[in-house]
Design a protein around this nucleic acid. Sequence first.
RNA 1: CGGGGUGUAGCGCAGCCCGGUUAGCGCGUCUGCUUUGGGAGCAGAAGGUCGCAGGUUCGAAUCCUGCCACCCCGACCA
Length: 488
Amino acid sequence: MAKDITSRSQDYSQWYIDIVLKTGLADYSAVKGCMIIKPYGFAIWELMHDALDKMFKDTGHVNAYFPLFIPKSFLSKEAAHIEGFAKECAVVTHYRLKNADDGSGVIVDPEAKLEEELIVRPTSETIIWDAYRGWIQSYRDLPLLINQWANVVRWEMRTRLFLRTAEFLWQEGHTAHATRQEAEAETLTMLNIYERFAVEWMSLPVLKGVKTENERFAGAVDTYCIEALMQDGKALQAGTSHFLGQNFAKAFEVQFSTKDNTLEYVWATSWGVSTRLMGALVMAHSDDDGLVLPPKLAPTQVVIVPIPKLLPELDEAIGKLEKELKGLGIRVKVDKDDQNRPGFKFAEYEKLGIPVRIAIGARDLAAGTIEVARRDTKEKTNIPLDGIANYIDNLLGEIQRNLYNRALIFREENTTSVDTWQEFVDVIEHKGGFVSAHWDGSTETELLIKEETKATIRCIPMSNSSEPGNCIRTGKPSKQRVLFAVAY
RNA sequence: CGGGGUGUAGCGCAGCCCGGUUAGCGCGUCUGCUUUGGGAGCAGAAGGUCGCAGGUUCGAAUCCUGCCACCCCGACCA
């Protein structure tokens, strides 16, 4: 086991913190609840960004940037929306500092009070819809498919690295459509993109579903989500896509002329994923030795460790191998550093989660093989040098799939269908994971269950078939099962 | 906002209860030599306003008061 990482069985929460801090993904900062994303962590986020950004653009979206500050009055225009965010907004009240008269340092200049206070965006619906009013006049202006990559601030009581921080990075898509059907289709298109990203890039199985009224985004008509299961049996919402109906169009008076020359409010969606995905990535695959990264999101996919002495012919063989791998588009690093010994490097790269490690020394050269070690299974194999690049390329694909399959099996083993309250409580308390159970559809019951067990309804799965039954808690009739879990 | 914890070298800690030379230890760093197929060995060296501010005392890392910061757990939430 890694020297400096707490084991999962000992303290899961500390394990997560150790992984994040000690693999250089992130660090705490001078500001409470805010984090520094360090170069290694940011490199992973950039790979996520690039993959998602391409998917957005391939489906017709364009990027733009809206202001960090939102006039206070905007937030109060949509009643449900403000209610959802009011408690966690940072407010800018002044615009100038000055030196204190007593020389004790700088103070806020009381003379420089803003006429209208500014809210640091917790999300950008309001400022964007205020702008859309001016951009949309006719059906010819629709659809409007805009995304922005930005930071947002939500003043959380309790924060956790990546999973919940006061400031975080995300993308937020905000689209406007002429018809309800089109907006609903857009909501689902984006949900499917998130699912595809989770599965294909993060090797993360996710469940698509609809949120209950209680868990819905403030201001949305429907909130769809992808939910993932972490290794400790807790659920994590990994992405959301909202059908906003005409709520924001009405709040911000955004109307358009139809072909029939009538005035109608536009239909809207918004959707987002955040740096929280980094947390999901860590908690889905990593182990007591450190990070385990899916190859597609690994900043370095293959590391080559030469075994000293680095004689000219060994150096030459490594150079050739590096070139071949790069030729296949593989992100490869050669560690010729003479300061650290191979054993140290092995441990270090395992900690960093690099999917494939190649060791090559004089012994291998003589035998015409190299040692290939995969991070996911810890297997080491001697492979002939001949045709090695293609072998590695395939191996990366296999690791990507293996991580997904492993996580999928874990989720299946940790999804339990229950029909009695006793079973429900027992599974939530002892086994964890997703619990599929009947629910009477009322918010009161949902809140009651939450109070009694800490479990919340993660979603009403979209794959659900209707199945009559009785509510797990109240016994009232239920049309279908929903998914409960204790969540992050 | 409640409960708990921490703050001493870059990192991890001891010392504090019971005040007293020059504040220690491990890791890391630097220099040199030997090493190198799973976290190297030896020798030497550098590195500290002991979280901040007061107080008690001949004397404070240590006792007292106040403050600050961060972390963990809980309530709230993506």
